[in-house]
Amino acid sequence: MATDTDTDTEPDVADVAGSRLDHRLVDRLLRGSLYTVAALIMLFLWVPLLIMIVLSFADPATTLAGVEELTLDNYQLAVSDENMWSALRGSLAIATASATIATVLGVLASFALTRFGYRFLNVFRTFGILPMIIPGVILGVGLRIYFREVFAREWLGLVALLESPTGFVPVVLAHSVYGLPFVLLVVTARLYTFDESLESFEDFIRALFLTKFSTPVVTQWMFQQIENLNAPKLNPVATMIVAIIAVALAVAMNVGNVTGYVAGTVDDEE
C-alpha cells in the first residue's frame, strides 16, 4: 500500500513564492481532472452492472424502459433452478480442484526454483509462465484436440470426461495449467525476498490468481443463459454473485492487512 501522504502533492503554502501560485492552481486543476477521470472510469465499470442489478428486480427483466414493477420473482425463479445449483456445485468443485492442483505443484516447484541453480530450471520457469501468453481459446482447442485424438475413446469411458470442452476433468486440468504461472510468481517472489515493495505486486498476483479460479464458477450455466438471453434468471444470479464476491473481497482485503501487520510489512496503514 502506498506510503505517501497527501502532503507530497501539496506544497506548503508558506514556502511558495508568488510565481508558483499558478502552479498550485494547475495542480488543483490537474488533480481535479484526475478525480473526474477516476469517477468516469468508475461509471464505465459500474453502469452496466448497476443496470443489470436493477433489472434483476424488474418485471419485465429485459429493458429499463419497459419496467412495469419491481419484484423478487426473478430471484425466486433463479433460486428454484436446479440446473443453476448443479452448475454452481460443479463449478465450485472445478475451482477447488484446479486451484489445489496448481497450488501444490506451484509451491513445490517454487522451492526448487529458488533453491537450486540448475539450468533446466530456467526452462521450467519459461514453460511454467507460458500459459500467461497463450490465449485461453488456443490452449483450450489444443487440449481438446489432444484429448480427443490421443486419449478419448468411448470404450475407455473417457470421452464424456475428456472430449466435452465443458467436462469436469478437462476443465480442471486446463485450469490447473492456467493457474500455475500465478502460483509460481507469487511463491517465488515470496521465497526470494520478503521485500515489502513486493506487497502490492503480490496482492495483485493473488488477485489474478483468484480470478482465474473464480471464472469457471457457474460459467457453463451462465453461458447457456446468455446464449439464450434468459434475462429473468441471469440477472439475479449475476447480482447475487456480485454481492457474494463483494463480501468475500472485503474480508480478503482486510485479512490481507492483518497478515501484513503480523509480518511487520505494513507500517503506516491507517
Partner: peptide, 24 residues
C-alpha cells in the same frame, strides 16, 4: 463452437418445464 445449442429452432430446450425436469 460457442453456440452450445442447436440453433434457434431448439433454443427452448433449456427452458420451461423441461428445464427443471431435465436438470436432476
Amino acid at each position: 463452437g460457442v453456440s452450445t445449442g442447436n440453433g434457434r429452432s431448439r433454443g427452448r430446450r433449456i427452458d420451461r418445464r423441461t428445464y427443471l425436469a431435465g436438470a436432476g
